[in-house]
Design a protein around this nucleic acid. Structure first.
Lengths: 354, 354
DNA sequence: CTTTTTTGCACAATCGATGGTGCAAATAAT
DNA sequence: ATTATTTGCACCATCGATTGTGCAAAAAAG
């Protein structure tokens, strides 16, 4: 009703008001009161008081006592791209539906920062940690292990905790194949030296994708030169420079382009800003990531949508197990043809339409 | 060195190991030891022990004692779009640089969920809250107020706490003007009934944008009919339906399209997926939001980049003030011409290039 | 060699919630 | 009316860190 002073009501306040002991109040308000054989009328009295005084439990106190916090963490490399932000969105919904509180943090793909961030989360006694796209999942594992925190790797696998990742090899094969096929009814079919891969670095995902790319390329086009693979890291800037360098050297872009991630794709955007439309006339891009806007660019863009919903679902399933096997679970990604607008987590949010 | 058992070391463990009292250990490890006149050698001893045993403070315990947590919250409507995810990215960096721990949560633009989420954050004794894009900032204010939590509105203003928002009116004027000008050297200049606004609803931002749109349209094209304004909410799906309905009715799209947000723009994407390229031949889109991929679509897309960095910087400045005035601070957004790839928060992340 | 001052630290209460234990009063069984 | 059960709840220690207070021992002053 009224919010009386400035400070929040505690069980002690309610204890005084109700004439019961603090432990009774506690039991009533955390739902264990039947187990503690509290009279129904007492419970009701206290519940009413709690409501009137807008009582909410101090979760730090509860967490301290329980050495659990109700927090579930998701560690991301970055927020600022559709793959991870949509993962965050899905994660939140999932965690909420389990009655816990989601905490999403990013660590910039920096091993130091990853460890520091996780250490902080552990200090808040988070209950579980989902480690997505960590550069050094095994060190993170060591921290979690020492703190007894259930954890699981997503997107990039570790060797010490169960991992759920997208099937990068298969995905890369699908994507590479789709790029090549796209040229089937073109006047000039794609030659091997016209199909390049840009982006990524020496992480598991990149390696698998490169392998898939190489294998299909060899199968379908008969060969693959290592020169056709340019791991430029995960920065738009370096990727742009790589494109500029290529263009400088060759006077044109490759006709077929496998781009390792949407972040690398942004490097191509930067390149595009510097060059006229015609530069991209005969281009087909395959991007290992899905971005709705990216799908509608002026040239055909084939994308891979990683199934982060399924990855998270599997991860939640595993983390619930008593002693999940330390193995890698592959989730199949989806090939997305050009000019496709997929539904996303936002579609389950109700708006004025609902 | 070794991580001994399973449980984390506490000041009591270190107290025993060092032969000092827990309060001394505490003082040493939280930096207040000079104030407490602890001998330097004692401090060193304890610090070494702490390091050896990988001591980290239990932040819940500290938070309980201090009734502060070191957590700083950012409440978002959704993660899954570039405006908010890049805000999250910037926010994290800022909070980290203040030595605090960022917590980003989303509430789906649902007033109920906003309140529930904030209540949870308050229960964890977060120190400060940045409320971005809340549908009901004033109710959130009431909660924060009652809990004595410093807070500030971003993106959508409230009437009870200081607000930092983008200058939606000016931005909309710039954007509308740019759309119209884009037709200047076209064969047929844009007529008023060819310029529509889609998206948004009855929030402050939408109202301001609609006002800016209407004013410029009247100024430059001589009139504006209310029929040219279609607030479809913030869902891709409803926006798509609105486009379909329009197309059904008119047999074409408007030549000039002001789209209220990138989320609404995704509605246009869905529409695009259903219609051939030609449908968009003579189209100019202005979108009140910036998305790098959106900037490179096959038709001219003029975008407004809201300056979330400046908004956050201003917000941090205000929240630090003792009693900031309850007023609205406007931050100028930036007009982004078609085919422009701006730098973003990711560019300050070092990669293998750094 | 006292008295005063400073140094260095230990003690204990506290933050709010939890849950094991124990004990009266109410009820049931004999 | 007694004894045995059950019901209903209060008491208290505990989680880990913080901080005001107080008190010895060491150093300085006299």
């Amino acid at each position: 009703m009224k919010q009386q002073g400035k400070k929040k009501a505690t069980i002690y306040d309610l204890s005084v008001l109700s004439g019961s002991s603090a432990s009774t109040v506690s039991a009533v308000l955390n739902g264990t009161w039947r187990k503690r054989r509290i009279k129904e009328s007492t419970a009701e009295l206290i519940q009413n008081l709690a409501e009137q005084h807008q009582y909410t439990a101090n979760l730090q106190a509860r967490g301290l006592r329980n050495s659990r916090s109700g927090l579930v963490g998701l560690l991301l490399p970055v927020h600022d791209n559709r793959y991870f932000s949509s993962m965050a969105q899905t994660f939140e919904a999932q965690v909420r539906s389990h009655g816990k509180c989601p905490v999403v943090v990013s660590a910039s793909r920096d091993p130091q920062e990853e460890l520091a961030t996780v250490a902080t989360l552990i200090s808040y006694s988070i209950d579980e940690l989902f480690i997505a796209g960590a550069t050094d999942p095994d060190s993170v594992h060591t921290l979690c292990e020492a703190a007894g925190i259930r954890h699981i790797n997503i997107d990039l696998p570790g060797t010490k905790a169960p991992s759920v990742i997208s099937d990068n090899y298969q995905g890369a094969r699908m994507l590479t194949q789709a790029i090549i096929k796209r040229f089937d009814d073109s006047a000039a079919p794609l030659r091997p030296e016209e199909l390049f891969l840009f982006g990524g670095r020496n992480d598991h995902a990149s390696r698998e994708r490169i392998k898939g790319f190489r294998d299909i390329k060899t199968e379908m086009l008969g060969q693959n030169s290592v020169a056709c693979i340019q791991p430029t890291g995960y920065s738009p800037n370096m990727t742009q420079k790589a494109f500029e360098a290529f263009y400088e050297r060759e006077g044109k872009l490759p006709r077929g382009l496998f781009i390792n991630s949407s972040i690398n794709f942004e490097g191509l955007l930067r390149f595009m800003a510097q060059h006229p439309h015609e530069t991209f006339a005969d281009l087909v891009v395959g991007c290992y990531d899905y971005d709705p806007f990216g799908s509608f660019l002026p040239f055909p863009v084939i994308m891979i949508r990683q199934d982060s919903e399924s990855m998270l679902a599997k991860a939640f399933e595993l983390i619930e197990e008593a002693r999940p096997a330390v193995k890698i679970h592959l989730i199949q990604p989806e090939l997305v043809h050009p000019r496709t607008a997929l539904k996303g987590p936002l579609d389950s949010i109700r708006d004025i339409d609902a």
